[in-house]
Design a protein around this nucleic acid. Structure first.
Length: 502
RNA sequence: GCCCCCAUCGUCUAUCGGUUAGGACACCACUCUUUCAAGGUGGAGAGGGGAGUUCGAUUCUCCCUGGGGGCACCA
């Protein structure tokens, strides 16, 4: 029998990491086994469901690279079938009409709380009612709910991650399957849908563990084959509590915005509650499909560790071919206005005016890749290379320029002269810089650091010779000239605020 | 309160009765080095408590404790 698994989120919020991880385990298993992945949107809570959330969930799945084979189906479309199933249970005696008033229901509830167990009061009232009275009430249009008659005994199943789990049926309430307004409730709808979609494996969050016996009982009463169940542990926040808004970003889309790569998020999520059993950590999607197995899913809930996600993202970033990364970086640079908008009026003209020799973006990305953990970080580091008027970072200036302003000026002037005369190759540039340092009787760093600040405005960057090559002769010399001019001017440089000097 | 699930470094995890309890993130050194990363080397850091089974328990059983989830005419 082919595996048919499903992901069934309710669109009452965005796709959160817990849901995404559940979807991911389903997806991995299905792709590994060659099964069918069904997507179903459980939108029967009309109050809280929204189309916007549905779109966000679909987008989140697509972003993570999880495609589905069937659906999306909408639970609200199955209303008639749900009712039919409820009626079938009523006909077979597995369910009964409950005419209880709200007051009676409230009293039952109190009684159960006090007794610490199920009272089955509603069932007793229903059973005490003669068929004639039931008919009369229905004739009169009295409202009633349909309740499932939980049989005596025990319900157990072999859970895909927990092993055998069992519940005493007396712990299970005679659940309402059809409300007095005729709408189906969750457990009935889920079972009806899973039956309809021929689902063979229900893999979901641990929070559904206690729904499972109810649902198994429903399958059995409906005379339908019971699917396999597997309950994966929940993902907790850093404080060990259930992940919630308090913990900040919990929607997958939030991480997309932060510049997390989908393949890193995918990798990270897979490792929450699962591990391949060896020391490998960085996996591509396909590698995860091959390595995944339900047997290695942990029973223990895991805490979402943002730092590890960031590290993993850096690993994926480094490994990602530059051609692949380039469009993402370019798009962000355009959004930031660092690069002219694509197709915008300024694109050709502005670029020509300010950028006689366009910066080699692929090389820049190559240089910045191992220095960034997220696309956002990379973009932030890339920024200065496109700015004609550098903002000099006060800390960098203080450290590398102002310890001895005159001496720095002298070195940079000297450097300007040497570099102007140098052939623009890495070897020649290095020779010029090191030669100068040697002649001046100082370490190469004494020349290199001030130069770095002149070229980038900051204290941290890729190697200085890579930098000179990247920026090119004209741009490098122009920046150096500006630094010399600024230093000569005597303007104060070590203040925060508007650091842009023109 | 009742039911269910869970329990190895701060975090993610390996271990399927016998290990100096391994790896990764983070942290701290050192190293490479023109800075920052990346990389390399090293360090610190864990079996919640108590019984039992066993020649031997992190591993199996039970109890306690702790954490989580669930107890709706929500999903």
């Amino acid at each position: 029998m082919t595996l048919r698994a499903r992901f069934a989120p309710s669109p009452t919020g965005y796709l959160h990491v817990g849901g995404a991880r559940t979807a991911l385990f389903n997806w991995l298993l299905v792709r590994k086994e060659g099964g069918v992945f069904v997507l179903r949107i459980e939108d029967t809570d009309r109050e809280r469901s929204s189309e916007e959330h549905t779109r966000a969930i679909l987008h989140g799945l697509e972003w993570l690279g999880m495609d589905w084979d069937e659906g999306p189906f909408f639970q609200s479309q199955g209303l008639e079938r749900h009712k039919a199933h409820a009626l079938q249970l009523l006909d077979s005696g597995s369910a009964y009409r409950d005419f209880s008033t709200p007051e009676e229901a409230a009293r039952d509830r109190e009684e159960e709380v006090a007794a610490g167990g199920r009272s089955r009061r509603a069932r007793q009232r229903a059973d005490a009612m003669s068929p004639e009275e039931v008919a009369a009430r229905m004739e009169a249009g009295a409202p009633f709910a349909v309740r499932f008659r939980v049989p005596d005994g025990e319900t157990a199943w072999e859970d895909g991650v927990h092993g055998e789990v069992r519940f005493r049926n007396q712990e299970i309430d005679d659940l309402v399957i059809l409300r007095s307004d005729g709408t189906p409730t969750y457990n009935l709808a889920v079972v009806s849908d899973d039956v309809d979609m021929k689902i063979t494996l229900v893999l979901r969050g641990d929070d559904h563990l206690s729904n499972t016996p109810k649902q198994i009982l429903l399958y059995e009463a409906l005379g339908r084959p019971v699917p396999a169940f597997a309950h994966v542990p929940l993902i907790l926040g850093p404080d060990g509590r259930r992940l919630s808004k308090r913990h900040g970003a919990m929607a997958v889309g939030d991480y997309e915005k932060q510049g997390i790569l989908p393949e890193a998020m995918f990798n990270f999520l897979a490792f929450l509650g699962w591990s391949p059993g060896d020391d490998r950590e960085v996996f591509a999607r396909q590698e995860l499909v091959e390595a995944f197995s339900l047997e290695r899913v942990l029973r223990k809930s895991a805490i979402f560790d943002l730092e590890k996600l960031r590290w993993l993202n850096g690993q994926h970033l480094m490994r990602m071919p530059t051609e692949e990364l380039l469009p993402k970086v370019e798009a962000r640079l355009r959004e930031e206005g660092v690069l002219p908008a694509k197709g915008g009026p300024a694109e050709g003209a502005a670029a020509a005016a300010t950028d006689p020799v366009p910066l080699d973006l692929p090389t820049l990305v190559e240089l910045l890749k191992p220095r960034s953990r997220t696309v956002e970080e990379l973009v932030a580091q890339a920024r200065p290379y496109f700015l004609d008027e550098l903002a000099y970072d006060p800390d960098a200036v203080r450290k590398h320029w102002l310890k001895d302003r005159q001496e720095t000026l002298g070195r940079l002037e000297n450097l300007l002269e040497r570099l102007s005369a140098a052939e623009w190759t890495p070897e020649a540039l290095e020779g010029a810089v090191r030669g100068l340092a040697e002649e001046m009787g100082v370490g190469a760093g004494k020349v290199i650091h001030p130069l770095r600040v002149a070229l980038t405005g900051v204290a941290a960057s890729p190697g200085i010779f890579d930098l000179l090559m990247l920026l090119g002769r004209a741009r490098s010399l122009q920046r150096l000239q500006r630094a010399v001019a600024v230093l000569r001017s005597g303007k104060p440089l070590d203040f925060r605020g508007d650091e842009t000097l023109s």
